[in-house]
Simulated scan of single mutants.
Amino acid sequence: MGTKFTLAAGLTVGVLLGSKLGPKPYETFASGMRWLRNTRVVSRPIEAAADHASGLVRSKGEELTDRAASSVYRTIVGAGQEPLIVEARVTTAEIPSTTD
């Protein structure tokens, strides 16, 4: 509860000060933050965290997709029955030319 209140109070103060000071101090602050974000000390950990999060989402996403597909299959087919095996063959087909 205390963290939410602190966040709301900080946001309120920021909005009030931003509206009183105008766009010039905001642009100065924003350009400073962009510069800081582009420094190697800050950008490397951010990029490493983003790569880690991306890999985690990818691996967990596949796992969750497989779980959901299995659950839907069990619901449709019924629990305890043998799995349905579908055989697929890929063939090539020639598309006739429309020019004479």
Results as ranks from 00 to 15, higher is better:
Phe5Leu: 14
Thr6Ser: 12
Thr6Arg: 10
Leu7Gln: 07
Leu7His: 10
Leu7Val: 08
Ala8Leu: 13
Ala8Phe: 09
Ala8Cys: 07
Ala9Trp: 05
Gly10Ile: 02
Leu11Phe: 11
Thr12Gln: 06
Thr12Trp: 09
Thr12Lys: 06
Val13Thr: 13
Val13Met: 10
Val13Arg: 07
Gly14Thr: 08
Gly14Met: 07
Gly14Asp: 05
Val15Leu: 14
Val15Cys: 07
Val15Met: 13
Leu16Val: 14
Ser19Cys: 06
Lys20Gly: 01
Leu21Cys: 05
Gly22Cys: 06
Pro23Thr: 00
Pro23Glu: 02
Pro23Phe: 00
Lys24Ser: 01
Lys24Ile: 00
Pro25Asn: 04
Pro25Tyr: 01
Pro25Cys: 05
Tyr26Pro: 00
Tyr26Gln: 03
Glu27Trp: 00
Phe29Gly: 00
Ala30Gln: 11
Ala30Pro: 00
Gly32Trp: 04
Met33Asn: 04
Met33Glu: 07
Arg34Gln: 12
Arg34His: 08
Arg34Tyr: 06
Trp35Ser: 01
Trp35Pro: 00
Trp35Ala: 13
Leu36Thr: 04
Arg37Asn: 03
Arg37Phe: 05
Arg37Gln: 04
Arg37Glu: 03
Arg37Trp: 03
Asn38Ser: 11
Thr39Gln: 13
Thr39His: 03
Thr39Tyr: 02
Thr39Lys: 08
Arg40Val: 01
Arg40Leu: 00
Arg40His: 02
Val41Ala: 09
Ser43Val: 07
Arg44Cys: 03
Arg44Ala: 10
Arg44Phe: 06
Pro45Tyr: 00
Pro45Gly: 01
Pro45Cys: 02
Ile46Cys: 00
Glu47Thr: 08
Ala48Tyr: 04
Ala50Trp: 01
Asp51Trp: 02
Asp51Arg: 11
Asp51Val: 04
Asp51Leu: 09
Asp51Phe: 01
His52Lys: 13
His52Arg: 12
Ala53Gly: 04
Ala53Arg: 08
Ser54Pro: 01
Gly55Glu: 13
Gly55Trp: 03
Leu56Arg: 12
Leu56Ala: 14
Val57Gln: 13
Ser59Pro: 02
Lys60Trp: 10
Lys60Gln: 15
Lys60Pro: 03
Gly61Leu: 08
Leu64Gly: 08
Leu64His: 10
Thr65Leu: 11
Thr65Arg: 14
Asp66Ala: 15
Asp66Trp: 06
Arg67Phe: 15
Ala69Met: 14
Ser70Gly: 14
Ser70Lys: 15
Ser70Gln: 14
Ser70Asn: 15
Ser71Cys: 13
Ser71Glu: 15
Ser71Leu: 15
Val72Cys: 09
Val72Met: 12
Val72Leu: 14
Val72Ser: 09
Val72Ala: 14
Thr75Ser: 13
Thr75Ala: 13
Ile76Val: 15
Ile76Pro: 01
Ile76Asp: 07
Val77Ala: 15
Ala79Asp: 15
Gly80Ile: 12
Gly80Cys: 11
Gln81Ser: 13
Gln81Asp: 08
Pro83Arg: 11
Pro83Thr: 09
Leu84Phe: 05
Leu84Asn: 06
Ile85Pro: 02
Glu87Cys: 02
Ala88Tyr: 06
Val90Met: 06
Val90Phe: 06
Val90His: 05
Thr91Arg: 07
Ala93Met: 11
Glu94Gly: 05
Glu94Val: 11
Ile95Pro: 00
Ile95Leu: 14
Ser97Lys: 01
Asp100Glu: 12
